[in-house]
Amino acid sequence: MGAPTNGDRSPVLVCDNVSRWFGGLHALKHVNISVAKGEVFGLVGPNGSGKTTLVNAITGFYPPQEGKILFEGRQINGLKPYRIAETGIARTFQNVALFKGMSVLDNILMGRHIYMKPNPLASLFYWWWAKKEEIAHRKKVEAVIDLLQLESVRDEHVDVIPLGLQKRVELARALSAEPRLLVLDEPMAGMNQEEKEYMVRFILDAQEALGLTVLIIEHHMDVVTAICDRILVLNNGSMIAEGPPREAIADPQVVEAYIGKQRDAA
């Protein structure tokens, strides 16, 4: 699942010796990852282990103080978040970060921002200037709405739809930016079994349809083992295991990080 059909395993995302401090807290300790094209790469670890910090480092919110981050061979650490978005990385947030004042459709249209040329004059002369562009991008967005089955809530305000749908709208917003790397921060947090299954299906569908590389943070181990090609386990900012999900999870250090060490028989 998720394996690339062609033999191209060139790394899309490389984190080389990435470190990040918050004051005296060493939140990321020399993290190295290499995500291949078309791969679904999982980031796993207990709370506070640095998963979200690593994602924030990649997307430019907390640039690493040490190390390099390369996206398709280009160094992106040090770029502002909106520049990183332009290189072809899109993400979702752990706590849904939708634009509350807008409809579902407008939220998803926001994903097209990097391809549009917004300016006040284009708005003023809508009929001669902006209309064509708006319609063209609307068509692209409708394809994403179709893929994620959001037709029924298209015109609703985002703050009145259920959380499961809000997370799907956020995924749709990220997908409509046509990213080559999709970063998902706990897309299934707070969902029930049915919603989780839907979400997994949508992520895999999107990955297949759009040829995405996916970096996903997830706590549900059933989801992780089902969809990830490889995972990285973090604990207190350090890498403690890496590899195919089942093997990595079985690693004694990982077991210790999650449920503690068995006491010596006394």
């Binding site: 430019g60 978040p81 970060a97 634009f99 509350k100 926001m110």
Partner: peptide, 11 residues
Amino acid sequence: DKDFAAAVIGV
């Protein structure tokens, strides 16, 4: 509405 979410999609 959300300046960091706006930044992450390129605004």
